[in-house]
Every structure is written in C-alpha cells, then in structure tokens.
Design a protein around this nucleic acid. Structure first.
Lengths: 219, 219
DNA sequence: TAATTACTAAACTGATCAGTAAAATATTTT
DNA sequence: AAAATATTTTACTGATCAGTTTAGTAATTA
C-alpha cells in the first residue's frame, strides 16, 4: 500500500472545510460583512488555525474565488442527435448550473466586490463567461461549416444565444434572491430564446423550428 | 415675494449634500465597507448632524436607494421617423444611461447587497428594469398592431430586444469596472442586436434591415 | 437685541474585528 | 513510550465602527 501520509489527509480535509465555510459566509454576508471569527466558527476550526492555513482575510478571499472559478465550467460538449437537440441540451445544462442559488450568490459577491478586487472580477470573467463563450464559438463555427448556421461574427452569435436564453431570468435573479425562476419559467425563456436564435441564424429555420417543437412538446 | 424660509433651504441643501456623499461612498465601498464617519467627512458635516438627518446607517442606505430609483428612468418615447430609427435611438439612449460608470457602480452595489436588503433589490427591479420593460412592451405592441412586427408574447419580445442589445456589454462591465466598453464596442453590439431582432421579429425583415443599414452606415 | 434653533467639535461607550501570543492538549511519527 | 508536530483554548492588542453625550458656537427669527 502506497503511503498516503495521514497528516496530509487531515490537512487537506481541514483546508476544504475552511474553504467551504468561508465561501458560504462570504456569499451570504459580503466581504466586509464577513468576520474571520464567523468563518472559524462555521468551519469548526480555531482562529489561529485559520490564520495558519490562510495568512490574511484578503488572501483567503482571493484563494476561494480563484479556486471557485475552476468549479465553474463546463465545456460545451453536449452530445446529441442533431444541432437543435444539442443546443437545447446545452441551454438546460447551462441554466441548471448558472441559476443555482449558490452560484447566484457567488456571482452577486463577485459583482459587489469587483471594484475592491478587480483581479477577482477579471479571473471570474476569464474562467466563466469567457470560457463558455469560447466553447460556444467553437461549436457554432462547426455548425456553420456543416451548413446549418449562417453568420459573420461567431462571437456575436454566441453572445446573442446567451443573451436570448438567460439574460432575462438571470438579471432578475441577481436582484431578487428570493424569487429565483422555476423550471417552468426557465423553460419559457429557453424555448423562446432558441426559437429566436434559430429564426435569425439557421440556414433552414423552418426545419429547425419544427425540430425544436418536437423536442419541447407542442405549445 | 413669497416667503421661502431660509432654514428650510439650508436643510434641503445639506440633506442633498449628505445624500450625494453617501451614494458616492456606498457605491465605492459597499454597505459594510462604508463608515458613517467617512460619509460625514465627505459631506463636510458633523456626525451628529448626519444622525439627526438620517436616524441610522440602514435608514440612510435605504433612503438613498429608494430615492435613486426615480433618477433611474426614462420612458420609452424616442420619437423618430420610423420604427427602425426609433429602435436605434432607444438603444443608444438606454445604453448611454445604463453604461455610465456611476450607474454601473450603483447596479453593483444593489446586486451585492440584494441578499441583505431584499426590499432594495425589489424596489430597483420595479423602478428600473420592470418600468423599461413595460415601456418596451407598449411600444412593441403598437408596432405589431401597425403590422410591422409579429410575435405572440410581447414580454418575451421585449426581453429579447434588451438581451440582444445590452446583456453582453453590461454583464462584462459589471465584472470588469476598469474596462467599460467604448462607444465603438457598444455600436457593434447594438447594430448586431437590432439586426437579429428585426430578422426574428419584423414582418418585412429585408426592408427593415436595409433601413437599419442606412442609419448605421455601411459595414 | 434676545430667544430660538441648528450645527459643530470632541470625546466617549460598547461592541466588533483582524491578527497575535502563550500555554495546554491532542495527534502522529519514530 | 518519547519526540515532534499540529491544533486548540483563552486571552490579548490595537484599531474601527455605530451611535450618543456634552458643551459650546453660529445662524436664523422675532
């Protein structure tokens, strides 16, 4: 049996406990509103231990945020039988990720602290939105090459798809934490967004819209 | 001459000075990050005076936010020669309002504190986005009645228009306060957004797209 | 001018917070 | 079991903060 030192295990476990607790408290209270005592209490760890693991409050905060960006995403590889099914699958997968309450809390935190911690805003943008966008661009470009879509600027097309599907419910959820859209409401946005996208970008909109209807059911 | 008591004038002037100072500090530092001393200093007012005008920090904060929502908007009455020109004019007017640095700071503040102050998030949503949306719905419905647009759900159409035009640059600006889009970049989003919207919603897309090009210049 | 009212400066209360120090205790390794 | 290491408890420092008190000063009104 390979020696996995016990100390290291403990250390990592404790580290994870601290990070989880800190993320929860930061997301709920904001940076300035969070006390290190509160984090220590939530992590069931003494304050000196906390400081031994992460030198300062600021370091802890940035480490969490930079760690969290990796959890974030999430390639654009939604295998499906055809483009419409793939787009539909992607839309739901992305919505289910991005509209989760914890995820929204994190987004609110990042936006709220973007002025005080510009590097975190930048890291988030690069690891989240930019990466998703890159995946979408690749995918949409491949569909254009296959003759299914038509556009000049792949980046704009990808941003349009995103905006059509999720901007409305997400913006609302950012302002109203206690009124996060239900799946029915999300379905309304997603189905409509895909419809508009296909209408504007598909080479054969009629066929793709029909295909979309077989997927989403008759309205 | 009608008697306008001097005392009242002084009072109102001082109140305004406090509100302006407080808004600036809150927007820059967040709620928890802002001290009443800092506000008093910025407003050039003593702390007891501050407390006489606004009982507590929380009261001051909510009063500012609820006052600010009125500044916010901004009916959808952009008189123009035709629908395309009106849409174009609205898009720019709205972008110029919403993408101003102070406005973005305020939005970040509201989003960041939405969990701690749900009523403020609600007030903002009602006074800002919801009101704009209502104006857009009215306008789009009138255009549908005039036979220029076609859609079932006016709310979805309005949200699509918004999402196509501004969701990408605004989301980015929320994360990256030091990289607010230039007017050239905004033009790219707006022109593309209008193009896609007309393609999906106009009854005569070809004509309207041509009209759009005469407005925006040849690409 | 006299009375009233609004304001200020300065100090203070009680609480909270980031971060540290010291000594005691548990855990792991040898 | 002994030595080394990690962690905890408790208590502390110095700073900051919301909110108040006091006593004095300036501006307004009558």
């Amino acid at each position: 049996m390979t020696a996995i030192p016990q100390r290291e295990l403990n250390r990592l476990a404790k580290q994870r406990r601290i990070l989880d607790a800190a993320l929860a408290v930061f997301a709920a209270e904001g940076y300035s509103g969070t006390s290190m005592d509160a984090i220590a209490a939530k992590a069931a760890v003494s304050k000196p231990t906390l400081y031994q693991y992460f030198g300062t409050k600021e370091q802890l905060f940035t480490e969490i945020m930079l760690a969290e960006r990796n959890t974030m995403l999430l390639a654009f590889d939604r295998p499906g039988t055809d483009m419409v099914a793939e787009l539909h699958s992607f839309a739901w997968h992305y919505a289910d990720t991005v509209m989760r309450p914890e995820f929204l809390s994190l987004a609110r935190l990042i936006i709220g602290e973007a002025q005080r911690f510009p590097e975190i805003g930048r890291a988030y943008q690069a690891a989240g939105p930019d990466r998703v966008l890159a995946g979408m661009i690749t995918y949409l470009t491949r569909q254009r090459e296959a003759g299914k879509l038509t556009f000049d600027d792949a980046e704009l097309a990808a941003e349009d798809l995103w905006g059509l599907i999720l901007s409305a419910p997400r913006n609302q959820a950012l302002h109203l934490p206690d009124r996060i859209p239900t799946r029915e409401q999300l379905a309304r946005y997603i189905n409509n967004g895909l419809r508009v996208f296909l209408k504007a970008y598909a080479t054969d909109p009629a066929r793709d819209l029909a295909q979309l209807q077989t997927i989403t059911g008759t309205p």
